[in-house]
Amino acid sequence: MKMGENNMFKLIAGPCVIENENLVMEVAKELKEITSDLGIEFYFKSSFDKANRTSIHSYRGPGLEEGLRILQKVKDTYDVKLVTDIHEPYQAEPVGEVVDILQIPAFLCRQTDLLVAAAKTGKIVNVKKAQFLAPWDMKNVVNKLQESGSENIMLCERGTTFGYNNLVVDFSGLLELKKFGYPVIFDATHSVQKPGGKGDSTGGNRAYVEYLAKAALAVGVDGVFMEVHPDPDNAKSDGPNMVKLSEVRTVLEKLIKIYNAAN
């Protein structure tokens, strides 16, 4: 399976981390209904482990085994495609048996062993561009995946480090990423982060998510990555950046109009 073979607007969305089964099922159900109504190609995303949290005391997730059980239930119940991230090479094979897209976190996008392991599963590999890399530097990441046997590649922009505790998005960088010939996804929620901005956790401003996503779609990206939660202010991970579930339909109705106009 390859992403980008049709002209549909693509959405990767879900809660940042698997907090519990009920929450994941609630979000997946609502997002499936919304995206079906709007004609959006939907991929449900949630993490079984957040291995790169700011603090050692931060909630990380249920772990590999329980996380994959819950994700499999989402797939079986709602017939949706799945995305989740991996942090270590050994995770690639078991995760690849459940999900449709293996995601490589931005901080780990140059980790050769992780990329090779993901490529060998034969699944789509979505690589988030590191906050410290120029867009054209992703050529080496792409080469590692290609030389490991993968052509099912996606590239994801999630903002670039700008001074301390801040990220910016260079929209011309999206055009640079598109030159590689693979689908490009814009991570609208992580791009509004303030890394470490709250001292022992990451801050951010979800009010900007819609506007950055609009700009990226106008440039011509293939889809949007958006983390969603029923109650972001009380979420266990990335709350300041996540879009409230009750607001998602309205946001997507606006975004799909821009996507259609740009394509």
Rank of each mutant, 00 (worst) to 15 (best):
K2E: 09
M3G: 00
L11F: 10
C16Y: 04
I18C: 03
K29G: 01
E30G: 07
E30N: 15
L31W: 12
T35Y: 04
T35W: 04
S46E: 01
S47I: 04
D49Y: 08
R53T: 12
S58C: 11
Y59P: 08
G61F: 05
P62S: 04
E65Y: 12
R69I: 03
K73D: 00
K73G: 00
V74P: 01
K75T: 03
D76Y: 06
Y90C: 00
Q91D: 02
Q91E: 13
V95I: 12
Q103D: 07
L108A: 14
Q111V: 13
A119F: 13
K120E: 14
G122H: 13
V125C: 00
F132G: 04
F132K: 07
L145N: 04
E147I: 14
E147R: 15
S148K: 14
G149I: 12
E157Q: 13
T161S: 15
G163I: 13
N166T: 11
G173S: 12
E176N: 12
P183D: 04
I185P: 01
D187H: 06
T189Q: 03
P195K: 12
K198Q: 08
D200W: 11
T202Q: 05
N205C: 12
R206K: 15
R206N: 10
A207L: 14
A218G: 01
V224D: 00
P230S: 06
P232H: 06
A235Y: 07
S237K: 05
S237M: 10
S237G: 00
M242W: 02
T250H: 11
T250F: 11
V251C: 08
K254R: 15
I256S: 06
K257M: 09
K257H: 10
